[in-house]
């Protein structure tokens, strides 16, 4: 299976405040890839890099088997893009905006566009500057879907939308994906939203790609353990210890957050003279938070 997006060792620096550092990311074709990260972590910058809008300082980019920026025109013809902020011309009406947009995309599907317009309740005669945030969001997803893309790049597509519109947008996207098998790259800081739909997840923080793994591994691999008589040294542990903290008023009992956990690893504790008292599953959001906490240096964590 080929990859829809491949970023290798991407670096980019903006002054002293922010930098993308050695980001290597792979999005398999046909998957729904959730791109998680707090605000300012570098998600939009990474997207703009592989959309050919920003030039990386170093590293290589391939999208849909073509290099960026050399094959950008062919790539963009096959990519539906919903950027972080609405990017439509406010003085046009919805139908004028659609006419303008369709003139650039040879694979534009009029019937599908009309159907989406009906399903999403978008008024074609409405001036864009008068659309609500939700209606604008619907129009953007309509524009991205009606061009029948092989890759959908959605940068915070549901940010600020009410739950009904959010569901409409996601449903339309998933319907399209299930019909065509297109790849979706969706960036968000709303973790629970991605939990239900994504196959893969990548986590960005401070310009680093902290983790990239299948959603199942992510959801099942991060656990909270309660350990009594825990050893000071855990270098030989078969799992990856993200954090440990002594429980208040419970003597020698500690809470550990671990990654890459499997049940067979319980025997490790008996071997080091400790007792595993409890294994708790974390949901995606808790796991995400713990992952970020563990990836940051101690000084940043204290902030």
């Amino acid at each position: 299976m080929s990859n829809a997006i491949e970023l290798k060792n991407l670096c980019w620096k903006a002054g002293k405040s922010f930098a993308l550092q050695d980001v290597s990311l792979v999005v398999p074709s046909g998957c729904i890839y959730g791109f998680l990260g707090p605000n300012g972590s570098g998600k939009t910058t990474t997207i703009r890099m592989f959309m050919g809008m920003m030039k990386p300082d170093s590293g290589s980019i391939r999208v849909l088997d073509r290099s960026v920026p050399e094959g950008m025109t062919e790539i963009l013809a096959r990519v539906g893009y919903v950027p972080e902020r609405p990017h439509v011309y406010p003085a046009l009406t919805v139908s004028e905006q659609i006419r303008w947009h369709r003139s650039f995309f040879s694979r534009w599907d009029d019937a599908w566009a009309a159907e989406l317009m009906g399903r999403l309740h978008v008024d074609p005669d409405m001036k864009i500057s008068r659309l609500s945030k939700g209606q604008t969001g619907k129009l953007l997803i309509l524009l991205a879907l009606a061009q029948r893309p092989e890759l959908l790049v959605l940068d915070e597509p549901t940010d600020g939308l009410d739950p009904v519109v959010r569901r409409d947008v996601l449903t339309a996207t998933l319907d399209y994906v299930s019909e065509t098998g297109a790849t979706v790259f969706i960036s968000s800081h709303l973790v629970h939203e991605l939990e239900r739909i994504c196959d893969w997840v990548g986590v960005m923080d401070h310009g680093h790609l902290v983790a990239q793994l299948p959603m199942n591994d992510f959801k099942n691999g991060i656990k909270r353990l309660r350990v009594t008589g825990a050893p000071a040294e855990t270098a030989d542990a078969p799992f990856h210890l993200l954090s440990r903290a002594r429980d208040n008023g419970t003597g020698s009992t500690e809470t550990w957050i671990v990654r890459d956990w499997e049940d067979t690893m319980r025997s490790y504790f008996a071997g080091v003279g400790a007792e595993l008292r409890d294994v708790v599953d974390l949901d995606l959001e808790d796991g995400f938070v713990e992952l970020l906490r563990s990836s940051r240096p101690a000084s940043a964590r204290e902030e």
Binding site: R48, M51, G52, M53, M72, T73, E74, I75, L76, A77, V79, Y81, P83, R85, H87, V88, Y89, P90, A91, F104, F105
Partner: peptide, 17 residues
């Protein structure tokens, strides 16, 4: 004017050189 207002993001996402 409009492209400047939209920071050229839209224009750059169109499949034309």
């Amino acid at each position: 004017n409009w492209d400047h207002q939209l920071n050229h993001v839209y224009a750059l996402s169109l499949p034309v050189p």
